[in-house]
Nucleic acid binder design. Structure first.
Lengths: 232, 232
DNA sequence: GTCTGTGAATTCATTCACAGCC
DNA sequence: GGCTGTGAATGAATTCACAGAC
């Protein structure tokens, strides 16, 4: 699901947070926002961990990679911690993304509430289908994929989202990379190859369901011992 | 992104495949299907690994958990391996899913091509909004969420998909569990609590983008050394 | 010679358990 | 007394490297 180098201590700044921790920080952020909305000013690792669905020791270790932002005997100041995590995640600036492919999924993504609160701005939509170019989706005029390079350059877009059919994914990825994009979120059912230095994350809806089906199978006792034949 | 117990050797059948491997098997399956379509009959671990975007040693170790389905000095028979993985993943039967929430995302999911080829069948759509109940989405009549329990029982649905706003997620999860469902895929931006024995996988679109933004930030040299202040 | 299958080595992640501070 | 922060211990996942089958 992830293809990323892990630069633990590989750069000058010396920070280097484990990948697994980075993947959880947004979850903590969400939990903190929710607490803040409820007017909670301070919380202990237990409470925050429960909100986030993780074990408290893991939460504390994760936070320890950022610094010592809690108070022993007391807990964490909700607003202060929220700010520190947001800063570490780069949410003190907005990130512009381009979505390639405005089918069902691309449209759903562009309509997704909650990007804006997390420093994500859908800056452009592009599609290869001339029928769709010029139409308006979520208040954005769909551009032709031919303009991809120009759009990326002009709007300083850093992140590309692929929401095309699987067959188009590699070509789109190549064009995104050629346009200078170094972070790609791929929803298409295909593995895309990219040069070093480009990060790709992949979300595959049917894979998630297949993983659940596997566990479900094991629970319901359809225990396929070596050579049990097809049932349905 | 995942909350699952790992039952390595915890059951009678003695199989027990690592979670990380289970998550990759569908990827291999996809790569094998693609090779089969191209008329390839046999392939070595290197080729398959490249298609799947993993290191060849990892691929071989993953496959070794299923059994010895390759031939030394030769490689793997595409069709045979494909069948073995499909069987292990439970794809020799169809899995019925119910999607709760027929907004943009729920609609996109119900229209998703490629479920059927992977043993996933969208058996029902439900929504809480009376305006949507009775409408037809992807050839399925949307039912009221009040009928959830009846639908699950009648159609023997094993997997529930939550595609509601975050605020409704916990209630929907509770109802799915009460209806007897033990596998949930949660797209809502909220952590849901479920009893032991219920598997939940979570996909959060904005979290994936936030993770990319973090790495992007580190690449573009916005190196936030402890106390460097906001730039944009 | 080729390529699989797998123990051993390594790297990464989680959890424990407690010292240190409030 | 309560709760954080973190070394040390455990557990999982990845990668190496090579014996063994073809």
């Amino acid at each position: 699901m992830t293809i990323l180098r892990s630069p633990r201590l590989a750069d000058g700044s010396g920070r280097g947070i484990p990948d697994a921790t980075v993947a959880r920080l947004p979850v903590y952020l969400r939990a903190l926002n929710s607490l803040a909305e409820q007017g909670v000013l301070s919380c202990a690792s237990n409470e925050l961990a429960e909100q986030a669905g993780v074990n408290p020791a893991k939460l504390r270790k994760d936070l320890s990679y950022l610094g010592s932002y809690g108070t022993r005997g007391v807990g964490y100041d909700v607003e202060y911690l929220r700010y520190q995590i947001a800063r570490e995640m780069g949410q003190t600036q907005d990130w512009d993304v381009v979505i390639v492919g405005v089918g069902n999924l691309g449209s759903a993504l562009s309509a997704y509430q909650g990007f804006s609160a997390r420093g994500i701005r859908v800056a452009a939509l592009v599609d290869a289908d001339p029928q769709r170019v010029g139409t308006v989706v979520s208040d954005i005029v769909v551009s032709s994929v031919d303009e991809l390079e120009a759009i990326v350059a002009e709007r300083k877009i850093a992140i590309g989202v692929i929401a095309t059919p699987g067959t188009a994914a590699q070509e789109v990825a190549d064009r995104l990379v050629a346009a200078g994009i170094t972070s790609i979120l791929n929803f298409a059912p295909a593995i895309v190859q990219v040069p070093d230095g480009v990060d790709v994350r992949k979300v595959d809806l049917s894979i998630e369901l297949q993983i659940l089906a596997y566990h479900e199978q094991r629970k319901t006792g359809t225990t396929s011992t070596t050579s049990k034949e097809v049932i349905a």
